[in-house]
Design a protein around this nucleic acid. Structure first.
Ligand SMILES: [Mn+2]
Ligand SMILES: [Mn+2]
Ligand SMILES: [Mn+2]
Ligand SMILES: [Mn+2]
Lengths: 218, 218
DNA sequence: ATTAAAATTTAGACTAGCCTAAAAAATAAT
DNA sequence: ATTATTTTTTAGGCTAGTCTAAATTTTAAT
């Protein structure tokens, strides 16, 4: 029904406003790595298909059916990421690019059988929640480690930044989903943080790292 | 590198002449369900990329690199078919259409990990051999049941016709890869065959069915 | 050897999806 | 309230991949 390109636009709009606020043409062009003029063209097509609400110069919003479609793509993307890691042994830094292709495979039964095969996972390898068959999706849990308090025991539940280079950096410290972290202290000067990983080694992270890690207490 | 469309053309050429004979424009148009004029256009593009040898009015042949590329697609297609049946539980009548999409996913490591995950299968759900990483592929085994002799014990190793309707017809008789068949007799009038399935029930098949079943002795 | 038929290519057109450059509208600054 | 800046849209252009209709070439039939 929808082309890969259309699906990428819908997903991008959803990512920018999971709660269906208005999104600007430039913001879309930015994350799609495309020119604003191209975005305007596509927005007209999506509007003609009633997948978005679009008034010139006013930004766009997903319609109910557009949001449903976007969540289908997100669901497929995240399920495939789980498959790639759990079944094929890819690292969390490798799964995204391949899932970008796999998310466009069209077959409802494929998606549902995959979900079943994977044991109905709740989150993907980056801790992001996986929408269910009906498009229901849990809200992201966790706070930024950068907003955490000293001495509180935390567990990593997700990442904000998804770039392979960041993920591999975390790998190099043995940090992944489920890793226990505690803040030893926060340096007032540059907000860098001293962290104890898994109750063992203590290391220093920049604020940049701390505000890209999602954690929950306990 | 190659587009999905280009890949489909290369695969179609390979299917028409696995041994790299010349293929006609019309034959390609036929199996690609496209117009000859469109095929001519694409042949020029493939020739420019040195994937085929093309002389106007003379038909086309795959070059070594074109054949390699074609076999990569066939490898991916057949591996995904195995995945869909073995891991997700799809029937052999359902896997082809989904594999038509999955075969275009680009990632060498994905293909190789999938192969490993599946236990390096030798044949796909229809009995067709799966090319290895280097493009080596076994020649099809088996003879047509229609060419078989009475009373010889045969085992089904493949199908010629791949249509879901034919495959489901076989399902309805409990016939799949590995099923034991014996020809009780061949009717001289219309070449219909009386067959014993798995040494149990005996049924009558048209010649049409018999020449779409591949079997080997014993 | 001509002529007829079939196969193939060429010519011209269309859509999707992108682009650049210019125009228009909205927003921010004076 | 103008003017300047930023955002967005319009206009026109390009490529890939398809199509129809017409021309050309090859093959088959007389
Ligand atoms: Mn991802
Ligand atoms: Mn993810
Ligand atoms: Mn197939
Ligand atoms: Mn097959």
């Amino acid at each position: 029904m929808a082309t890969s390109s259309e699906e990428n636009y819908l997903k991008a709009i959803w990512k920018l406003t999971p709660d269906s606020e208005a999104v600007s043409t430039n913001a879309l062009a930015e994350i799609l790595a495309m020119r604003p003029a191209s975005v305007t063209d596509m927005l007209k097509k999506l509007a003609a298909k009633k997948l978005i609400g679009y008034k010139p110069y006013q930004g766009v919003k997903l319609t109910a059916s557009g949001r449903k479609k976007a969540l289908e793509i997100v669901r497929k993307h995240r399920l495939w990421e789980v498959f790639l890691r759990d079944k094929l042994g890819f690292g969390w830094d490798e799964v995204h690019d391949i899932a970008e292709q796999l998310e466009h495979i069209e077959s409802e039964s494929l998606t549902d059988r995959l979900d079943h095969f994977l044991g109905f996972p709740k989150v993907d390898p980056h801790g992001d929640p996986i929408p269910d068959k009906d498009g229901k999706i849990l809200s992201d849990t966790g706070i930024l480690l950068a907003h955490g308090t000293v001495k509180t025991p935390y567990v990593v539940v997700g990442v904000v930044e998804h770039s392979p280079v960041f993920l591999r950096y975390l790998d190099s410290y043995g940090i992944g989903l489920g890793t226990l972290l505690a803040i030893d202290n926060i340096e007032a000067y540059d907000l860098s943080v001293k962290i104890t990983i898994n109750k063992k080694k203590s290391v220093l992270f920049s604020h940049e790292v701390a505000r890209n890690l999602l954690v929950t207490e306990q």
